[in-house]
Design a protein around this nucleic acid. Structure first.
Ligand SMILES: [Mn+2]
Ligand SMILES: [Mn+2]
Ligand SMILES: [Zn+2]
Ligand SMILES: [Zn+2]
Lengths: 140, 140
DNA sequence: TTTGTATTTGCAACTAGTTTCAATAAAAAC
DNA sequence: GTTTTTATTGAAACTAGTTGCAAATACAAA
């Protein structure tokens, strides 16, 4: 079992139990440089502890998401992907034709968020958005 | 069976067969004033023709979506909803706390789309978006 | 260190949606 | 009107994800 990082500390500070299962999910996300899928997280865990159930992984991700510690993004392909909220991140443009994924800076959605807050008094989530469409190569 | 409307004509013009199943899915969407779920579409169909399979409904919706004849939106609650593309529509703000759904004019996303086209040469879909977050009442 | 208890887990059953494949039927050809 | 062709369908098996519940365990209290 790896050492729990920053997310683990926050979890126990908030009164949640630090189970081995949770620590393993956390480690998988923190150790991953890019967006990681449930399948990938579970594969890492099950290699060491085969008795762990995948529903526990789903439940842990649900918790981390709700607490704002990880973000969830649908990048296509029928499975969502996760990312540590601590690390800086991008939104993404996903080409539905060729599958290309273009990174988009956090700031691109700022003015939209501002408008929604100003004109609709609505605090938009939009923490890690993927926008589907067509890239320049595929739009001829 | 109802008379096929504008969408049905387009379908057969594009060379797709006009089956009773497709016409029934189309009618359900065209007759609905608001966003309709697969469950609701299927309930209408099965009441008259119980042998129709729900996978046909899913396949028809997939086709209509791909052709740009209907839009799909995730308004929460674990089921997506559909809307005729011919009728004018709104995007939506969905409060994750109280469930309130606020309509948002088509134009609110225009400047975002413009930016993405100008700076990233990307044609964003964003045909019928739902943005999750917190409404003014729930953000205290 | 042991005990108590509320939280968390594993398991199994469930949901929405997708896919494969043989049977059916819409539309074209005759 | 009948035959032929090929798209479409129904059925069943499958995928990602969720949920209810009894058993297990993290952690606090003694
Ligand atoms: Mn990202
Ligand atoms: Mn709408
Ligand atoms: Zn592309
Ligand atoms: Zn609200």
């Amino acid at each position: 079992m790896k050492q729990p990082g920053g997310i683990a500390n926050k979890l126990s500070e908030l009164g949640y139990r630090l189970t081995p299962q949770r620590i393993m999910v956390l480690s998988a996300i923190e150790d991953s440089d890019n967006h990681i899928s449930v399948e990938e997280i579970y594969a890492q865990i099950v290699a060491k502890y085969p008795q762990v159930n995948i529903s526990t992984v789903y439940r842990t991700l649900e918790l981390l998401k709700r607490l704002g510690l990880v973000t969830e993004t649908d990048l296509g392909g029928g499975r969502v992907r996760y990312h540590s909220a601590e690390k800086g991140h991008h939104h993404h443009l996903v080409c539905q034709e060729c599958g290309a994924i273009i990174d988009l800076d956090e700031s691109v959605l700022s003015s939209l968020k501002d408008t929604l807050l100003r004109e609709y008094k609505f605090i938009a989530g939009l923490r890690h958005l993927a926008i589907f469409g067509r890239c320049v190569n595929c739009s001829r």
